[in-house]
Write a protein that binds this DNA or RNA. Structure first.
Ligand SMILES: [Mn+2]
Ligand SMILES: [Mn+2]
Ligand SMILES: [Mn+2]
Ligand SMILES: [Mn+2]
Lengths: 229, 229
DNA sequence: ACTTTAAATACGATTATTCGTAGTTTTTAA
DNA sequence: TTAAAAACTACGAATAATCGTATTTAAAGT
């Protein structure tokens, strides 16, 4: 067997962050990493250098870093552990979904043992997504990234189902839960105010106005109306 | 509120170990700590020094270390988290009791959040002991250490119930489970061979011969026979 | 009391992770 | 094309945790 072995919790966090930024922007800039990981820029430079030596990433100065095959394999493994941990917290321990993410971020490093992950997966009923709708990679590293639209990009009139919350910030999650905008809910965009103004949408017979910022963290599966193109 | 805050996982492990050695021998010698924590002696000296500065322990050179009130409070908290983690692993995830201890030793540092511990406690049905029979401290730091006898100290003829396995080594636990000597089982000592020879005992209509070493890790609750003194 | 042994400490050194400031390089905007 | 802004790197330094090899000190045995 190969890979997955012996990366410190810190490096696991780095890999996780790089994976996400790479998905979104094609590469992870050091400044973005610094923000996401809450450390000083110099720290990123240092760690990045050591990670490159370990063949976990490839760094092109001023362009950002990308995962190597080895780095990606570990990153996906961490994400699997993270999302299964979140399920454990919400489904079994009944912890609020807004708190689950941060706790899982610590748990994920404690449950590296293959057997536990498998048992966890089974006990939870082999869930496909985390409580926030994000996909759980399979044991052998497959991750199904569905084709989804960012809510903020939908035009007035278009319908969809809320599917993923990609920014798992406690306050945002708490807010969304409080107003009922959670995965599974059908919505229709009514209006987009100009000058980066709010998006108005309808869901569950109610009307909602969301800032574009928030709407950019929500992914929806578009629903094509009967007879629509 | 006081205490419990912000000790590194490493120090939590130290405190846990010191608590156990203190229970057993009145104080924790640096050499015992080195063995128990699997680090070099010099490392212990260093860490001990820093822990004393943080008011977690009191060190009398050549006599050993003892916990301060603050140190004890944290140690007990760690033990609570450890034992609840073990229950989670065995009761919910159906992990073997021989593997639970080592995994819990990592988990315990990841679930420091008060809420989770409380939820865990509730979901598990507020268990009184870990899967190996050792008591789980209460939320406010009470720990009920029952009066028990070490199996190796029982004399031929005496009866008891296996109650705690205090040395939670995977191989020992696997062995005990394989022969069925687990907490709750009634036993009677039949014979103690001289020259530190094995102890013979009867349980579940079978006969067992245990080395004194093993028998010293098993605590039993003595059962007084009808009419016995 | 003297010697041997065991326990503990001192010391020098390494690795991982982090910080902050100062200096470069690239990008952007004029 | 040049100046300003933003992004990045270099460097010096700190802390926690660890090691291994002396050296010192206490305890035990003769
Ligand atoms: Mn994480
Ligand atoms: Mn999630
Ligand atoms: Mn532990
Ligand atoms: Mn236990």
């Amino acid at each position: 067997m190969l890979t997955t072995k012996d990366v410190s919790p810190t490096l696991e966090e780095y890999l996780e962050a790089i994976y996400k930024l790479e998905r979104k922007n094609g590469a992870a800039k050091t400044s973005e990493l610094a923000k996401m990981l809450n450390v000083a820029l110099g720290t990123i430079t240092n760690t990045i250098e050591s990670m490159e030596k370990q063949n976990l990433i490839k760094h092109k100065p001023y362009k950002g870093v990308n995962l190597t095959r080895k780095g990606r394999r570990i990153a996906i493994d961490v994400i699997r552990r993270h999302r299964l941990s979140e399920r454990l917290l919400t489904d079994i321990l009944k912890i609020d979904w807004s708190k689950a993410h941060n706790i899982a971020c610590k748990l994920e490093h404690a449950i590296s043992d293959r057997d536990i992950i498998r048992r966890l997966d089974e006990v939870l009923g082999k869930p496909k997504t985390c409580p926030h709708g994000n996909p759980i990679p399979s044991e052998d590293g497959e991750i199904l990234e569905e084709e989804l639209e960012v809510l903020v990009d939908l035009n007035p009139g278009e319908r969809g189902v809320i599917t993923r919350i990609v920014y798992e910030d406690p306050e945002l999650l708490e807010y969304l839960a409080s107003i009922g905008l959670v995965p599974g809910v059908n919505i229709q965009v009514k209006e987009k105010a100009p000058f980066d103004g709010p998006i108005t949408l309808k869901a569950m017979n109610r009307s909602y106005a969301l800032g574009r910022n928030i709407a950019s963290f929500i992914l929806v599966k578009k629903r094509h109306v009967r007879g629509g193109r």
